[in-house]
Amino acid sequence: MSELFQEAILVSILAGTVRIMTPILFAAIGELVTQRAGIWNMGVEGTMLMGAFTAYIVATATGSIWLAVLASMVVGGLVGLLTAFMTATMRVDHFITGLGINLLVAGLTLYWFRIYIKGRAQPTFDGFENVPIPVLSSIPWLGEILFSQRLLTYVAFAAVPAIWFLLYRTRWGLELRCLGENPKALDIKGLSVTGRQYIAVLIGSVMTGLGGGFLMLGFSDRYLADITAGRGWLAIVAIIAGNWLPRGVLAAVLVFALLESIATHVQVLGLNVPHQIFLAMPYLASILLLMGLRRKSSQPLRLGIPYFR
């Protein structure tokens, strides 16, 4: 293999990594807000799938991918509303709620998808194009890896410091984090616990829906059943592995995306091993990451425990 070719593959793997990070990062950084508020949303996978499915329907029906992005966020929010109703209002166990949401969405999307494509060829759409940033994108190597990406990829990376600022530098963020540690304190001050929980779940779910939308519109031109393939779960693992800190979450998502990007390049690399091994890497890595994890210092104390006055 020539050196030039190797360079090109390396750049391609890294640029792919950044793109693959996008949907998981949206979900992970959004759900970090939810989890910081004490709600352990296990329905991320379902929320993301719903976002991706909606984006597909809207993109093919209207031809507008930005309308599709908007729709995926709205639908993500609707699923979030259901999650919040179950966890914050009905106070059903958070894990069970999430499982229920996942199963419901898996069924709904499959059903509507079958109806949508009944009796015709599956419609396709034109996904996102790259939007190179002027000047920066002409830096050798780095320009191609970081600054020739889809528009929403830049947004996802900008969301990390934005969420950090919201959580750690605003009064709102302080109250929200307090919700995860000691909701009673807020309640005694006369601040609404349930209301804040709703907002936290909605922020997470809207961003997860957006992640699903990007997954649909940024990588492919048609929908497949169960297209999220566990990325919602990876987002949850990234939060735990990242010790509930924005920078840690970012690092964990980077690991998953790098593994997946390598898997998509296996054929180019010409390695003679079953491709399933590479496909399995992110899932295996997530178990290993959680096994090696000893720090859970920043886990919200009341995470996943319904609050009764």
Partner: peptide, 22 residues
């Protein structure tokens, strides 16, 4: 009717039962 209605129905029933349990 696509038989995928059945898993969707099952999901709906589960959430309804969870709320009823509460």
């Amino acid at each position: 009717v696509p038989d995928a209605l059945v898993p969707a129905m099952q999901g709906i029933l589960l959430l309804a039962f969870l709320c009823a349990g509460v």
